[in-house]
Every structure is written in structure tokens, then in C-alpha cells.
């Protein structure tokens, strides 16, 4: 068994092709690439905890205005109608498309917000040494959220709608648009700054003690 435990601590495994490699010592800013399939195995990110905490807090603050303030509006013959993200969903429910409304709610509101909250909570706990065993389960679910965040697609959706509307009526851009773009920037950059391996190592260390 001792041979096994050595391997467990000294090796890293490629998630894409299962190749076993020896774990190297890394400094901040370095990364390891799998020599068989080229997948990124490990990246030691600079100042990860602080940066992620700052960005995810900013994202949480921006989430409310981004969802409730009007994003775009149209005007024709004296009528003006603005719409926010929440109103989009409300309109779909009124039209009888509850399923689609639920999907849009999940992909653009619920999942991004939960993800930002999770990142804030985890980096906060690690920074101020408040690690509890429950954090293990909490951070485990975080990974699942990454591929279901669709803020970036919604932004492209806004741009395409603008093109469609320019032709139809007078187009107005609301404050919500700026809030939404800022939210998108925060939400995207935390996936760059958050260092999964570092967080798992920290959680493991502080729970072992």
C-alpha cells in the first residue's frame, strides 16, 4: 500500500487522456501541459485568492442592476418600451413558454449568480481561515456550473437583436446594458483567476490539521 500512497501524492493524471506524470514544483505564473495530448494539467496562478474574491464580489454587486435595469428599448410613433432581462422572462411566461423561461432564468440568472456567490464564499473562507468540511461538498458542485453559464451568449443575443431592431424602430440602449457587460466581464475573468488546484490543496491542508 505504501507504494500506492507515494504515487497518489507525487503524480498528476491528465483528465483528457489518463497519462500519468510526475508532479512538478511550480512557481506563480507557470503551467504544466500534458506531453501526450497537450491538455493543460495544472496552472499556478498569480495571486489567485485575492483576485477572485475581488472580482466575484464586484460581480455579485453588479448582478442586481444587470438583471433588473432596462437593457434595450424601442420607440415608434411616440410609444417607448424598454425591457430588462427579468422582463424578458416575464414576457415568455405570459406567452405560455414556461419551460423556455425557466431555461433562460437558469442559464443567465440563477447559475451565474450561484457561481459568483460560490466563488466569493470559498475565497473568503480561505482568505480568513474559516474552512469547514462542508466547503468540500460546496466547491465540488462549483465545477458543474461552468459550462452552463451563458452570459456571453446572451450578450451576442443583445447585439443581434439590436441589428434586427434598428431596422424596425428607433433603438435605445439602457443603463442595464452597461451593468450587464460589466457583470459578464467579472463572471468571465473569475474563471481565469480562480485556481482550482490551489483551492483544493488549501482545503485539504486545513482540514487535515
Amino acid at each position: 500500500m505504501s507504494g500506492h500512497s507515494n504515487k497518489v501524492h507525487e503524480h498528476i493524471i491528465c483528465p483528457q487522456c489518463d497519462l500519468l506524470s510526475r508532479a512538478p514544483n511550480l512557481e506563480q505564473g507557470h503551467k504544466v501541459v500534458c506531453k501526450r495530448c497537450g491538455a493543460k494539467l495544472y496552472e499556478c496562478k498569480t495571486n489567485s485568492i485575492d483576485r477572485t474574491l475581488a472580482l466575484s464580489l464586484a460581480g455579485l454587486i453588479l448582478a442586481l442592476p444587470a438583471m433588473s435595469l432596462p437593457i434595450i428599448g424601442v420607440g415608434a410613433v411616440g410609444l417607448l418600451n424598454y425591457s430588462s432581462l427579468l422582463e424578458c422572462i416575464h414576457q415568455l411566461i405570459n406567452n405560455g413558454y414556461q419551460g423556455i423561461a425557466l431555461c433562460i432564468f437558469l442559464f443567465t440568472i440563477a447559475i451565474p449568480v450561484v457561481r459568483l456567490f460560490a466563488a466569493t464564499y470559498i475565497t473568503w473562507s480561505i482568505k480568513f481561515n474559516r474552512v469547514t468540511p462542508a466547503l468540500l461538498n460546496f466547491f465540488r458542485s462549483y465545477h458543474q456550473l461552468d459550462s452552463w453559464t451563458m452570459l456571453h451568449v446572451f450578450l451576442l443575443g443583445i447585439v443581434v437583436s439590436m441589428y434586427k431592431l434598428v431596422d424596425l424602430a428607433e433603438l435605445h440602449v439602457g443603463v442595464g446594458f452597461i451593468a450587464f457587460v460589466s457583470l459578464l466581464i467579472c463572471s468571465t475573468t473569475i474563471s481565469v483567476t480562480l485556481d482550482h488546484h490551489l483551492i483544493w490543496d488549501r482545503l485539504e491542508q486545513s482540514l487535515d490539521e
Binding site: 415608434a76 410609444l79 433562460i104 459550462s147 452552463w148 451563458m150 451568449v153
Partner: peptide
């Protein structure tokens, strides 16, 4: 994966905005 949701978002936005 997620990029094909584009059209759904466009329709949702248009339906909410164009309501005169």
C-alpha cells in the same frame, strides 16, 4: 455547446422589447 442558445435569447429579447 452554449453558443447555439443565441437564437433563443434573441427571440426572448425581441418578444419583450417589441411590445407596442
Amino acid at each position: 455547446g452554449p453558443w447555439s442558445m443565441l437564437d433563443v435569447f434573441v427571440v426572448a429579447l425581441m418578444a419583450a422589447v417589441v411590445n407596442l
